[in-house]
Design a protein around this nucleic acid. Structure first.
Lengths: 200, 200
DNA sequence: CTCCCATGTGAATCGTGATTCACAATTCAC
DNA sequence: GTGAATTGTGAATCACGATTCACATGGGAG
């Protein structure tokens, strides 16, 4: 059975998405050109019509991730002007994003994707630091407007914030998904809020 | 040049340690039987005198990690009876442990080691949950003795605690080590303490 | 309608890394 | 000191996965 012919732009997106899905379900190790090809209904060599190499494909996948993360922050920023509320919504949305795309933590933590090409290593950094900085901006604004404690380094607040998400993910992975992440996040949020919000 | 003949118990430990080091410096992906062999001064096939397979070796490495993590908690527990102080010391010691053994986060987060054999997957879980539970015990004791807020789920406190370490590690990796982790940890600790300690 | 180019296919190549095996050297019990 | 067991070696073997290539085909421009 021959696969339908598609324009390379469409195929590229389709293939990158397939890779993302596969990483999410089976992990980065298990990601082979063959598996990706099968998922989009192509033959392995067909992938090379659209990507120069596996490395190239991974870069595209990484871009996809970066786009989604930043989308998240941006939309939260649009939804509410209040820093505390922004963070709360962001937390919940992030938990959801990571649950749906388990590939994200895998890629971010994977040292394979991290150490392979110098180029991609730099891009991983760019994606993550970019994301950190966006959150940091929210914190800074909140401090300026007197909504958050101003006597702490914004970066520290960001770390604490990301920490909630990260450790929740670890717990999730380790328990095989038998924790109610949303509930945990809500509980953690209360602690976080107590720590960083401006005492009235 | 022929390698000195050593008893298999000694070799096993030596080899597992070499693997741990290599994972720390070059990542799990780069870990080959050949590289481990070279590091201990053996020839690749020599490894198989002491381990049934690469998988077997990874399991041993994992055990090493588990032992070190638990050691950490235990010694902290012996050093001071105060929950808050225990957590503070544990935080600092953990940062140091992870800095020295970068292999630990790599192994813990790696889905390769995670998804390969069912057996090892279970052991990873055991190691991590075991560790979580130890910290959780400390928190519970602190709550009982009125040192920590008792109106929060201990697990939530643990997650927050681990979160500090995790996100600090991410920052560290991403910035290529150009942050003062200890200083960040201290700052984060202040926030954490504010959130969880019992209001007088 | 037809030609050309982009896209898809299947077979072959190629390197890598784990694993095995027959043989060598070393150690230890006796 | 000698022999068996243990440990180390080097040369295969083996599987797997990425990549290439010559060929097939479909779809759109003219």
């Amino acid at each position: 059975m021959r696969a339908q012919k598609l324009q390379t732009e469409i195929r590229r997106e389709q293939i990158a998405q397939a890779a993302l899905d596969l990483i999410g379900t089976h992990g980065l190790q298990a990601l082979s050109i063959a598996s990706v090809a099968e998922r989009v209904g192509l033959v392995p060599s067909g992938i090379y019509r659209h990507f120069k190499s596996k490395d190239d494909l991974l870069s595209a996948t990484l871009n996809l991730i970066g786009k989604r993360l930043l989308n998240n922050v941006e939309s939260v920023r649009r939804e509410t002007p209040d820093a505390l509320e922004r963070l709360r919504v962001l937390l919940m949305r992030e938990i959801r994003l990571l649950l749906e795309n388990q590939a994200i933590p895998r890629v971010v933590f994977s040292e394979s994707i991290f150490s392979d090409s110098v180029d991609r290593k730099a891009r991983v950094r760019a994606v993550i630091t970019g994301y950190f900085q966006e959150v940091e901006k929210i914190v800074q604004e909140g401090q300026r407007k007197g909504r958050l404690r101003a006597d702490v380094d914004p970066l520290t607040v960001v770390l604490m914030f990301k920490g909630m998400v990260l450790s929740a993910m670890v717990l999730w992975k380790v328990t095989g998904g038998s924790v109610d992440l949303v509930r945990q996040a809500e509980a953690a949020w209360e602690l976080f809020r107590a720590a960083v919000s401006k005492a009235p």
